[in-house]
Design a protein around this nucleic acid. Structure first.
Length: 312
DNA sequence: AAGGCGTGGTG
DNA sequence: TCACCAAGCCT
């Protein structure tokens, strides 16, 4: 057992009998920890609707909880349902999104609202298959909505879950994205109705204890962690984080900032001052915003947030 | 399938 | 300081 291979569970071609507790994450200890350590996030309150949970999931795609909270609170008060969101128009939605980042998410959220209000009787679909057909909803968000809004027993795999499972179950510092993730987590899921809380707890553990940098192993509730057992081996080289300063993304952000601030269409000159250093780059950024459908040009040649001219 | 897509907090 | 990172999705 001392030379046991952490990855495969096999040694020299001989099957090693692994205690069940080594291959799983103890649901009891995880749930007990979650019950006392869970953050009191507003979208976790019982009266929150599936649509409002969906909104939180859109906002949380690559944006930290602390920045999402205030925007989400104001958002659901203003637009509590898909139909209310759809009726608001995409320009107002893009404006309310503010500086959460990746405004394509806001556009897709509005598109979701339109589809759900017009084709699904204003009710968020409950099954993963249908959710996956909606704009901006991918593998994670579809399962998160099915699980957290409808208590479906489906694996929910985000970056936190991936990391926790990679460490506790596989003994690796992190996990390269892989299709095995879904099967891995499905195998860990409790058989009973606690599956959704189990998933929430797994995510919470990754977000607050088993973090990417400086994991707080001293307060981890898991009694079995193969990463710890293996002596915390380092992960493989991570791919470089994308640059931001000076990129087209930053220029797009500047242009969107100008558009958001104006309730009426702006002139080309007003956009030009948002990025003086490289006019070619500025043109490219504006063009890409038009291609993405985030910005529209009015008949008189000015620019506005997409949908600004529409009748609400 | 690798890379584009915002923004701001943090160690 | 500045690289890293934060409940991904899409092409």
């Amino acid at each position: 057992m001392s030379a046991f291979h952490a990855d495969t569970g096999f040694e020299l071609g001989m099957a090693v009998i692994v205690p069940e507790s080594d291959m799983t994450i103890e649901s009891d200890e995880l749930l007990r920890w979650y019950a006392q350590a869970r953050r009191d996030l507003p979208w976790r309150k019982p009266e929150v609707t599936p649509w409002q949970i969906l909104v939180s999931e859109f906002m949380l795609q690559q944006t930290p909880v602390s920045r999402v909270e205030p925007i989400w609170l104001a958002w659901i008060e203003r637009w509590p349902t898909p139909s209310a969101t759809a009726a608001a128009g995409s320009a107002e939605v893009l404006r309310a999104w503010g500086k959460l980042g990746y405004p394509r998410r806001a556009k897709r959220l509005h598109e979701c609202a339109v589809v759900i209000s017009s084709h699904h009787d204003d009710v968020v679909p409950a099954d993963v298959e249908t959710l996956l057909t909606l704009p901006g909803i991918g593998a994670y968000t579809a399962r998160a909505v099915a699980c957290f809004a409808y208590s479906a027993r489906v694996p929910v795999v985000d970056t936190n879950v991936r990391r926790v499972v990679a460490r506790a179950v596989h003994g690796r510092a992190d996990s390269p994205a892989s299709v095995r993730d879904l099967d891995d987590v499905a195998a860990l899921l409790p058989d009973d109705a606690t599956a959704p809380v189990f998933s929430a707890a797994l995510m919470e553990l990754g977000a607050t204890v088993c973090t990417a940098r400086n994991p707080r192993c001293g307060i981890c509730p898991l009694s079995v962690c193969r990463w710890r057992t293996a002596g915390f081996p380092a992960g493989t080289e991570v791919k470089r984080v994308q640059k931001y300063a000076g990129t087209d993304r930053q220029v797009r952000g500047k242009l969107m900032d100008v558009l958001r601030a104006s309730s009426s269409p702006v002139t080309r000159a007003q956009l030009d001052v948002a990025w003086l250093t490289d006019t070619a780059q500025r043109d490219r950024a504006l063009d890409s915003l038009l291609v993405d459908g985030l910005v529209e040009q009015t008949t008189d040649g000015r620019f506005a947030l997409a949908g600004e001219g529409e009748i609400p």
